[in-house]
Each structure stands twice: as structure tokens, then as C-alpha cells.
Design a protein around this nucleic acid. Structure first.
Lengths: 252, 252
DNA sequence: CGTTTCCTTGAGGGCGGTCAATTCGGGTGG
DNA sequence: CCACCCGAATTGACCGCCCTCAAGGAAACG
């Protein structure tokens, strides 16, 4: 099937292989050379569509595969003994979910699509086999894990910021960076998650989250139009993210 | 040097090799067979003493080695742009620090001894070399990373618990489990960190932390005598850890 | 166009931060 | 062994932020 013979865009993207994938420079393919990349392709099912609110995997079910976000967004959440859902992470294009479940062998959280998303499924046992013949894959994996731990620490920082505004500002800055897929801040980006999800993630009531958004707009740090966020004063936003006690005079 | 010829206990423990170490079943040696373990020993400096408040490594300095806690305890903290210290983790015997710094190549946090501690230093570059000749080391590392991520997620859970009591109860339960080095809860254990450190870690003022301790004692969940904590009602403590809104009648 | 869901805004009360005083414990020196 | 000191921990009083409850408005869906 060639691109020109295919009028259905979805089917076309489904047919994309790892080598031509837009994420290949940072994703799994970067750990392989051209000769070996066929081996990888065999254990990956690429770009399958998952509709909004679709559950990718369930907490406590057997761990079988990692999922890589190709487009769209996921959230993962833990359901505690009281039935309360607790969001543990958001995943954007290029992110890999399921890493924390490898050791235990069952998924520690439930993964759900926030928007219509395309995901690549990587069978873990077969990937582990590949590591034997492809040493560079282990190097890549260890680097990936280290980065995941590092971004986890960033999030610690976010949660231990005391005020609602500083939490939200930290969250938005991290999201802005991640959206850009680089070390720069993307000035305009779309929030794929609801206020409720953000509040849950940051340990805030969703009304408080909404009020924090309003105050960031009042302070002219950001503009918002529904889910579209624009950073209009990056420095002031950074100040908000590090201040535990807001001084309204300074940042009015 | 034999044990009998050595009257100085410190020197004796310094001389311990990886093979006879009490932690060997879960620590790095478990990834090696008897023939290979000599290779490991060559890149590890075992059990060096670090006095209380001694800094093991500094934030932003070049990443060179992982440190394994043999006895005692460490804390790691990030100093933000305002000079405020933010504790990111506590490390007990068997724990490994520095994993999150591998990817960036500089230490993301500062590590400090909470009590007089013995640490094993593992040169990372040489360890990475060893992975080439010892494939099981990669498997072990990936499992370790996954566990670290998982315990990170547990901590997310802890921080997003809303009330001070539920945060502290969750923290104590986690510490109790980690102290026992198993899946069971150690009923009596010593807190190696101060109230201030706990408060910093949990995003609470240290006065609030102290009050939360007092309320857990009032509720007869725990007993405390200075730094010594005894869990006297595990189930009630678990209830405290999951309740967001305390019902004093139920748990009085 | 109606329904549903999400978001925003307001009012009131409780938890936790801040400031402050006191007590407790460990360490030192006489 | 006791007196003293200093840091850590506890406790109290007060106030502000955020949670809760509630209502209204906006956006998304069929």
C-alpha cells in the first residue's frame, strides 16, 4: 500500500514504519542501526488508534507491553482502596508509558486516552530478548529510565510548592517545555486534560485550579482561550512558579 | 587481614567484600555469578564512613558514581533559585542514590548523611563497561530502575493526599515497610530524619508535622519516644493514610 | 436546539502556615 | 554528678489559603 493509493489518512499513518516515524530520532529506533531496525519493527504494532476515554490498559492486569504516544495524549491513574482515582502522570507524543510496571509484572496504574490518540505497542518480553543481541538498546533504556526518574523529581518539586498558583505555574512551564520537544518553552500550546485532571494531579480542588488560571491571566502571565494557553510573560510565570508566598504588589 | 586480627570494628567492616556483604542478595552482587564478582569488587569502594551532615555529592557537580547505603541514612535535596532546599528523597540501607543523574551527567541533587553512615561508591563509567561483558547486569539495572519509578509513584500518592495526617501516615507506612527490607511492616523503627526534614519532604510546616504526630498518638495509631516510632494499630494507621477528610468519631 | 459536561465565580468554614513561647533532650564543661 | 546551653520538638493563638457547597455560564455533543 502506497500513500497515494490510500485516501484514508488514518490507514496511511497506520502503515508508517519506525524508520520513517517523525519520533524516530528520540524514540526506540534511535537505539538501532539500519540493519537491525527490522528486528524492532517486528515487535512493534505502530500507530493504532485509541479513541478519547478509551482505556489502554488496566491497573493490576498483567504487564505485557509498553506504549509510546505517537499523537494525542494519555493519562495514568491509580485507583485506591476507597475507589478514588489519583492521576500519576500525563503522556505526550514521544513519551513511553508502563516503565514503572516492569518490575512487578502487573500494571501499577490504568492508562486512558485524553484525546483521540495513536499509540505504538511494544511487546516487552520480545524487547527484552532484543537487548541480548543489541547492547546499545540497554544503554538507551538506562538513559531513558534515568530521564524518567529526573522528570519525576521535577514533579516532586511541583507538588511541594505550597500555593495553588505556584503549583499551576510549575505545571504549565513543564508542559510548555515538553510540548516543544526541546529545552525551549513553547509559547502557545493546547491543554489536552481537563481542569479536573490538572487539579487531581496537583492535589488541588478543580475550582481552585480554575481560580489559579484566572489569577495567572489577571497577572498577565498567560492568556487562555478554552484549552489553548499562551505564555505572554515567561519570566513572570517563572517567578510565580518559585514563590511560595505571593506578593501581589510585585506581580500585579 | 582477618576479622580476628582486627580490633577496630570500623576497619573490619571497611574490609568487607561484596560477596560477604549482608545486602548482597538484593544489591549489585546479585547480578553477578561467583566468577564475575571480582570484576565488580574492583570498581566498588566498600563501606566508607560518612559522618552526620557530611555532603556525599553536590548538586550540579559532575556525575561520577552511584552510592549505595550500607548502614545509616541519606537525604537528597534540590536547592532552587531562591536558595530554598527541597528534599527529594530519603535513602536507607540497600538503597542506591544518583540514578536520576545518569542521563544529564551532573548530579541533580545534593546528598547528605542524616546519621553516621557507611556508603559503597560505584564508579558509573566502569559499571557501564561491565554491562558489556555481563548481560545480566542490564537486566538487573532495568528492574532496579522500574522499582525506583514505582516507588516514586507511591510518593506521588503520598503528596497528593490532602490532609497532613494522611500524608504523615502514608509516609510512616512506607518507611515501616522499607525498614523491614521486605513486604511486611516493621512495627518499631527509628526515624533518622528530623521533623523539619519530614515536613519539607511532605510539603508541610514542621509544626504541622509535629501536630500530625501528636494526633496519630492521640488516635492510638502509633507510639513515639523521641525518634523511635512504634505502630500499635496498623489498620487504623492505614485508614488514616487513605482518608482525605478525617472523621474523628470513627478514629478517635 | 436541547442536553450534557466542563468551566467559572461566589460565600462560608476548616485546615494548615506563621509567629511565638515553652518544654524536652543531648552534649559540654565544671 | 550536676548545671548549663543549644537545638529540636511541642503547643498555643491568629489568620489566610484552599476545600466545600452552590449557582450560573460556556462549550461540546448529538
Amino acid at each position: 500500500m502506497t500513500a497515494s493509493s490510500c485516501t484514508n489518512k488514518t490507514i496511511n499513518t497506520l502503515a508508517e514504519d519506525c524508520q520513517s516515524c517523525i519520533l524516530s530520532s528520540t524514540c526506540l529506533p534511535s537505539a538501532f542501526n539500519k540493519n537491525e531496525i527490522e528486528k524492532l519493527q517486528k515487535i512493534v504494532s505502530s500507530g493504532k488508534q485509541h479513541l478519547r476515554q478509551h482505556t489502554v490498559y488496566h491497573q493490576n492486569s498483567p504487564f505485557q507491553a509498553l506504549y509510546i504516544v505517537k499523537s494525542g495524549a494519555l493519562k495514568t491513574y491509580i485507583t485506591d482502596s476507597n475507589g478514588h482515582e489519583n492521576i500519576t502522570g500525563f503522556y505526550l507524543p514521544g513519551d513511553i508509558t508502563g516503565l514503572e510496571s516492569i518490575a512487578k509484572g502487573t500494571y501499577l496504574s490504568t492508562a486512558e486516552a485524553l484525546t483521540d490518540s495513536r499509540l505504538c505497542k511494544v511487546h516487552y518480553q520480545q524487547l527484552a530478548e532484543l537487548r541480548k543481541s543489541t547492547p546499545s538498546l540497554s544503554d538507551w533504556a538506562i538513559n531513558l529510565f534515568s530521564q524518567s526518574l529526573a522528570s519525576g523529581h521535577e514533579f516532586f518539586n511541583c507538588l511541594s510548592q505550597h500555593t495553588a498558583i505556584s503549583k499551576l505555574a510549575t505545571f504549565l512551564l513543564a508542559l510548555s517545555k515538553r510540548t516543544s520537544q526541546s529545552d525551549n518553552y513553547q509559547t502557545t500550546f493546547l491543554l489536552s486534560m481537563s481542569r479536573q485532571d490538572i487539579g487531581n494531579y496537583l492535589g488541588l480542588a478543580y475550582e481552585t485550579t480554575s481560580r489559579a488560571f484566572t489569577r495567572l491571566v489577571e497577572k498577565k502571565c498567560i492568556q487562555k482561550k478554552n484549552k489553548e494557553i499562551s505564555i505572554i510573560d515567561l519570566e513572570k510565570l517563572k517567578q510565580c512558579s518559585t514563590l511560595n508566598i505571593m506578593n501581589d504588589d510585585e506581580l500585579a
